[in-house]
Amino acid sequence: MHIQNVEFLISAVSPQQYPEPNLPEIALAGRSNVGKSSFINTMVNRKKIARTSSKPGKTQQLNYYQVEDWFYLVDVPGYGYAKVSKTEKAKWAQMLESYFSGRSNLTLALLIVDFRHDPSKDDQAMKAFFDHYNIPYFVIATKTDKVKKSQWNKHLSAIYKGLDLESIDQILPFSAETKEGREEAWEIIDAVLAGEYDE
């Protein structure tokens, strides 16, 4: 997939700031420092359209990117970062609940998890959230380049069981370093936007 035009639009904290819902929307959710920004940069083939940070918890708004005249990609605040205050966490939770429960053009959520580790309680809670609101989702397991191929089945199984998924095929191994899974991720997005995705 060759993307020519991608634009950072806005960092939004409330529905009043969201762009007009005239394009389908794909949301990225995952814990802080799981590689969401690197995923975005790899997918659109840009080095720095999404800012990566060595400091977890830096994304505190919904960051909107417009991909062509095709869809919005929305990077939501990372969760599970211990140094963020309870007040801040509560604000984030309220913002995410408002977004996920009320955004009419939200077409797909991508749950970004770290391939090296079992899903966290926060990952499990986010997946349950998608189930509750009937949001179609797919699991992207990042940092696969850090795991030996001989161990992949073991890690895939741990994510499948940890998130109580219906099928192991709901997990896509992905690496920003090697671009492993990039084309497959575009196939998923393409199918969703064409109305062909069957969860």
Rank of each mutant, 00 (worst) to 15 (best):
Glu25Gly: 07
Ile10Ser: 02
Asp69Asn: 15
Ser11Lys: 15
Ile26Trp: 00
Ala90Leu: 15
Leu28Phe: 04
Ile135Tyr: 00
Lys146Arg: 14
Ser85Cys: 09
Lys154Gly: 01
Leu9Glu: 07
Val74Lys: 10
Lys89Thr: 14
Leu9His: 03
Glu25Ser: 07
Lys47His: 02
Pro21Phe: 00
Pro21Asp: 03
Asp114Cys: 07
Ile140Val: 15
Asn105Cys: 08
Ala90His: 14
Lys89Glu: 11
Asn33Phe: 02
Ser14Gly: 05
Ser14Phe: 00
Ser54Leu: 13
Asp122Ala: 15
Ser104His: 08
Lys89Phe: 08
Leu110Phe: 01
Leu73Arg: 12
Ala12Trp: 01
Val113Thr: 08
Ser150Phe: 00
Lys91Thr: 10
Leu73Phe: 03
Thr52Leu: 03
Lys148Gln: 12
Lys89Leu: 13
Tyr72Leu: 11
Gly102Ser: 08
Phe100Ser: 05
Gly78Val: 12
Lys48Trp: 01
Asp75Gln: 07
Gln151Asp: 09
Ala109Glu: 02
Phe130Ser: 02
Asp131Trp: 03
Ala90Glu: 14
Gly102Asn: 15
Asn63Ser: 11
Gln17Asp: 13
Ala109Gln: 03
Lys48Ile: 11
Gly35Arg: 06
Gly102Tyr: 01
Gln94Val: 04
Pro21Met: 03
Ser101Ala: 14
Ser120Cys: 07
Leu110Ser: 05
Asn153Ile: 04
Lys89His: 13
Phe138Asp: 01
Lys55Ala: 12
Pro19Asp: 06
Ser85Ala: 10
Glu68Phe: 02
Leu110Cys: 03
Ile140Trp: 03
Phe100Cys: 10
Asp145Gly: 04
Ile26Met: 12
Thr59Trp: 05
Ile49Lys: 05
